[in-house]
Computed example of a mutant assay.
Amino acid sequence: MYYFIQKFHSGWAYIALLVLVVAVVTFFSGMFSKTEFTSANRKIGLIALIVIHIQLLVGLILYFVSPLGFASLGQMSDKALRLTSLEHPLINIIAIALITIGWSRHKKLVTSASKFKTFSIFYGLGLLLILSRIPWSMWLA
């Protein structure tokens, strides 16, 4: 079971990153080109939100069944264990919270420019935080 969850979390991460990058590029291009915010833009934001929340859910399950997660919290002197048991989950939860805040805030806004700006800021910060804490040595191996 652990092996399946770990492989799913790693594989789904490619999809989550791709969808999030597409969303951020779409929102930044909409902001700079001053186009109208459409239902397609809204759907891109929603799909990114759903995909990233699925990644969070699988990651939380993995965190509690993995020997590199919650069980290794006491070994903070090891850089790799600190990344997988503390930094990666904590920073990614903050990133997903920012993405969720961006989604919630856009609903209250009226103008297209403000919607694109809100999405660009919150989804962009979330993407940067996620990219900063990916365990690249484990992921690409």
Rank of each mutant, 00 (worst) to 15 (best):
I94N: 07
I47P: 06
S33V: 06
I61Y: 03
S66L: 01
W103I: 02
I94Q: 08
V110K: 15
D78G: 07
L60P: 00
S66I: 01
Y63N: 01
L57K: 00
L56D: 07
V58L: 09
V22S: 06
V110G: 07
S137L: 05
L46I: 13
L83Q: 14
S112D: 14
V25L: 15
L49D: 09
N41P: 03
G30E: 10
T84Q: 11
S104A: 08
F116N: 09
R133Q: 12
G59R: 03
V19G: 13
V21D: 10
M31W: 15
I96M: 10
S72V: 01
K43R: 13
S114W: 07
L98S: 02
S85T: 07
G126P: 01
K108P: 06
T118S: 14
W103Y: 10
N41D: 15
R133F: 06
E36G: 08
L125T: 00
N41A: 05
G69F: 00
L20M: 08
I91H: 05
L131S: 12
T26N: 15
A23T: 02
I121M: 15
T35D: 14
L62D: 06
V22D: 04
V21W: 07
G69H: 00
L81K: 14
F119C: 08
V58N: 09
L98M: 08
S29N: 14
I44M: 13
V58M: 10
V65K: 08
G30N: 12
I94T: 07
K107W: 04
W136H: 06
P89G: 04
R133Y: 05
L20H: 02
L131A: 15
M76F: 06
N92H: 08
V21T: 15
L125M: 00
K43L: 11
H53A: 05
Q55M: 12
I121K: 13
A23C: 09
G30I: 11
V19W: 11
F116K: 10
L60D: 00
F122P: 02
V19R: 13
L17W: 09
P135S: 08
T26L: 09
S104R: 02
L20E: 04
V24I: 00
L46N: 12
L73G: 04
K107D: 05
I47Q: 07
